[in-house]
Design a protein around this nucleic acid. Sequence first.
DNA 1: CACCCTATTTTGTTATCACAAGTCCAGGCC
DNA 2: GGCCTGGACTTGTGATAACAAAATAGGGTG
Lengths: 228, 228
Amino acid sequence: MVDLEAQAPTAESVAGRAHQWLRRELMRSRFRPGEKLKLRQLAEELGVSLTPVREAIARLVSENALEQLDHRSARVPPFSEERVREVCELRMELEGKAAERAAERATPADVARLAAIQARMTEARLAGRGLEMTQENERFHMTVCALAGMPVLLQIVENLWLRCGPLNFALQSMRFLHRPEEHPHNDVIRGLAAGDGALARLAIQRDIAVYSDAIRRRLPAVNVSASG
Amino acid sequence: MVDLEAQAPTAESVAGRAHQWLRRELMRSRFRPGEKLKLRQLAEELGVSLTPVREAIARLVSENALEQLDHRSARVPPFSEERVREVCELRMELEGKAAERAAERATPADVARLAAIQARMTEARLAGRGLEMTQENERFHMTVCALAGMPVLLQIVENLWLRCGPLNFALQSMRFLHRPEEHPHNDVIRGLAAGDGALARLAIQRDIAVYSDAIRRRLPAVNVSASG
DNA sequence: CACCCTATTTTGTTATCACAAGTCCAGGCC
DNA sequence: GGCCTGGACTTGTGATAACAAAATAGGGTG
């Protein structure tokens, strides 16, 4: 059984903790696109009753991170190539704006924080720790978006990332998209350090474009049709 | 008591209908920013138990249409002027893109549908039917976004509109923002009819900019501090 | 051997209940 | 008279149970 308290000590109610836990599990690519979620199974794993788990799933459905299947059961939505393309186009638009804005506002301390994240991500990648790599990658993008000082934009981008969580397990085995010194994140950091919004925007957009291509190439292997 | 079945015949579960109902009530500006929602009161009005209402509120919190207040109660989030500005900036970005894309795809039938909506909206405005006016306005914007053929974008814009629902009651009394023939929607329609994406984008952005100014001017009267 | 019908089990839904935390009001004490 | 305290009431939480619908398995039949 999972200890909810340990994982989310700040969360208030059992339902809230169940929601955060499920959210994290989605981001960790525990579930595959197309996979159904079973209420009693999750409730037992968490050691709680059905009620909070049901509420957590309902919330994720409202966030479009899950999909109501047949008016009874919920599943992780499968992704078409077109859907990946659209999400990435929107991410390029929104994260591009965020990076541009962040370049106008970032302090040297912020830049150092980003550089540290990027260093940890590169280290995880070279060491083959795929999950850690994807988590630092997420932290990098969310930090840039937070620096824009636009909370609503941040919420939207977080939601887009959540929806892509089930796809990202395909990333964990991709270690060689860039050589470390050529990684687009480096240009994002440079742009933020120099106050060069255009550079930051283009760099983050290049990063997302590479992601889009990589995921779309692996899409057939990611989606699951009838298992789970 | 409200007859849920009549209002949402397509919705499946009681919880789903309660969610749709609450969503609609928010869009109708039934609740003011800052107002707390009471579980038993809503449950009684709907003639259902607490469970589905609780789930509906949890969903709206996840959609950022409601806000968890003190780890117990939920309220409609108050809006700062800065928040209105940000939401409108994002709407200009996203709806602008949608309008541009819609101009490349709209058929004459689509354009006619939009023109009919605009006509109904103008009629409602001139007749002083404020609620109907705002609903047709919403329908106009959602239709344009749907024509872009980008479902994720549509979901994001719908969410931004939902969050603004409680503000929009301030619009219902504003009848004279434009003379009918000068309304920006007319240029949106022209842009879509002519396949002129730039015209459509600029027109929808102008519309949103006017909205932003109008709401921000009335913001002090919209937010409620401690009632409800 | 394949197919269909039925019984059993699985799985999601929702009302109810016991409970806890917070609020409000009144009465008494300083 | 103001403030503190205690109790009733309000309000949200979560486990449980009864229920309904769907999936599954098994047996019988063509």
